[in-house]
Design a protein around this nucleic acid. Structure first.
Lengths: 349, 349
DNA sequence: TTGAAAGCGCTAACAC
DNA sequence: GTGTTAGCGCTTTCAA
């Protein structure tokens, strides 16, 4: 309403303290939820904070307590923006609360691991979040470790000493999805593999195989065809599957893009999805719900994963500060089977 | 290599000054590229910076020169993560250089404009970046303005006083794409509209119409069908278009999702794309290159747009600080016509 | 052209 | 429990 005031600086802790009638230190302690503050003082400060709309100045806080550090979300050119966006959102929401400053670094395409390590080190980063496939790049991980930079890997099953990780159980998710199809009545289920460079690919295949075996179904190698996560590769893979003498009644593609490709192939061959063939994906990317029929798929809580990653880094730093070295942490988050319209009971023949 | 040292604090400007044999101030000035530093001193400092691997401490810098402010990237639930991811990447890369601190705020779904304004104000944000459709929400924009919060709208043509904006020329891009089809030989071009709440939708339609008129082609209203940017709506719209007595030889969908839907419909009807019908999209989302045939579409430089947005905010703040009020800025970025496999010369009949 | 001094807002140490 | 004293690393005065 009143536009006269040229600047209204945000309130400082000093003003909060004055407003609450306590010393600056008490205000600081109260704001940070530390112990050793009387209930009365705490209440007064809380009130003052509300009244003034006080928000701590992150820079000052960072500068004063040496507790703050920079952490980087490192990504390669191959990380899709949707995936990256989710990671960013999660990390950005968590970082300030953990007193961490988040920066984003992109690996130059074709760069050597050593160069990337150098770049990260130059940026005075204390920890990095490594989404796939970076987290499976041994030289990079090793280089970072040598520099004493904390690492948290997203969605890997690698067990590197000191490396933190956040993941979902890919194998188990694939197992569940396969079991879902088996319970629907499918007996011949095609599998389209992902890029062999991503270890998740192998884990998903393992889950698929386990489910088949546990349900006493044949494990026909002809039903397992290669792919590389791209739509294009899915097209070829689906063609191979559909051309089989005994066509599968369901296809489990290692990601949504390839599942979408399989649906396209089915359309072209006038095979109705899901009435004549069920097709499932993995990842629940926007594509999964964009196409028709919408894909039954597995959702991974990407945003939560990066949130957790920040949490792990914060914990690691805290334990380092306290001298307790080498606390390891691996957290597994729950996935979700999202059932949409691309799967059904197999047609009788 | 040597893991013995528990902590190696980054060098400070003090050390740089000492190394260069100058005072702290001279070092500071040199590092910041200010005038009034002798060439000799500057060289010495540069050397010291290189030698020590000095990187300015952002927190200290922000704290000292009160020049830093918080800016928020506001997004609604309807912003897709891919779009948001691109926006974030651009903004995050530019913000530190402009001495701005970026935060992300999500509008609670169904919240009133006043509530959102309140939320933003509480966060002591000096400026906001408003992607569509938020930038076209009059009450929100008005509320923010009343609070004296700088606004930069992404991809809008609204001309609100004081509001900064970064956009591409939607109308012109649509014109170009339509012209492209016309030059290929198409005379009956269907158009699938976008969500009427997004003003870009109307701008694209205008470009389509203009191109038709300028090339002396009939403007058949039956060829313009409604949609809302969703794949689902694209399915319906494409059905209507394909069911027309005189079927169009090309379809221009207002975004990629709907274009993908049109391709699916064409497949179902056994109409070959692009041999029998050309289908173009808009936005160049990942979907555009994920499907087959890959879409000919328009790419907007989203990452650059948010980078520019940050730049505009920084400029606005600077001019405010200098007392020069009301500097307006609207930047237009270039779009790109991405030609892939979904368009071709029309079949003769 | 350069430098010394004085903080920016906050929190670790210590006292009380 | 609370308050006091020092800084964190940097940039803004202002004086030399």
């Amino acid at each position: 309403m009143q536009k006269s005031e040229p600047k209204k600086k945000p309130p400082t802790i000093k003003e909060v303290a004055a407003h609450a009638g306590v010393s600056i230190m008490t205000a600081s302690r109260a704001v940070n939820g530390k112990a050793l503050v009387s209930a009365k003082a705490r209440r007064a400060v809380d009130l003052a904070v509300k009244a003034l709309g006080y928000v701590p100045n992150a820079s000052a806080r960072a500068l004063a307590g040496s507790a703050d550090r920079r952490v980087a979300l490192l990504h390669s050119h191959s990380t899709t923006s949707a995936y990256l966006g989710e990671l960013l959102l999660g990390a950005m929401s968590e970082a300030p609360q953990r007193h961490l400053h988040l920066v984003v670094e992109q690996c130059a395409p074709g760069a050597f691991a050593a160069e990337i390590v150098e770049q990260v080190a130059q940026a005075h980063v204390a920890g990095v979040i490594l989404p796939p496939p970076l987290c499976d790049w041994a030289e990079l991980v090793e280089g970072l470790r040598a520099r004493d930079i904390a690492i948290v890997a997203i969605a890997t099953d690698q067990d590197v000493p000191d490396m933190l990780s956040v993941s979902t159980d890919d194998r188990h998710a694939a197992y569940d999805l396969t079991r879902h199809l088996i319970e629907l009545g499918h007996k011949r289920i095609g599998f389209i593999e992902g890029n062999p460079r991503h270890r998740s690919s192998a884990r998903r295949l393992q889950g698929y195989k386990d489910a088949l075996v546990h349900h006493a179904l044949d494990l026909d190698e002809a039903l397992i065809v290669p792919g590389d996560f791209s739509y294009r590769s899915g097209l070829d893979a689906a063609e191979r599957l559909m051309a089989l003498d005994e066509r599968p009644t369901a296809i489990f593609a290692c990601n949504d893009d390839m599942a979408a490709a399989a649906i396209t192939v089915a359309h072209q061959r006038k095979v109705n999805v899901p009435a004549e063939i069920s097709i499932c994906g993995f990842d629940d990317t926007p594509l999964a719900s964009a196409i028709w029929p919408a894909l039954t798929t597995i959702r991974q809580p990407i945003r939560d994963m990066s949130r957790e990653a920040i949490g792990l880094l914060a914990m690691r730093f805290r334990s380092q500060d306290e001298g307790a070295d080498g606390v390891i942490g691996k957290v597994k988050l729950d996935y979700q089977l999202i059932r949409r319209q691309s799967d059904a009971v197999p047609a009788r023949h």
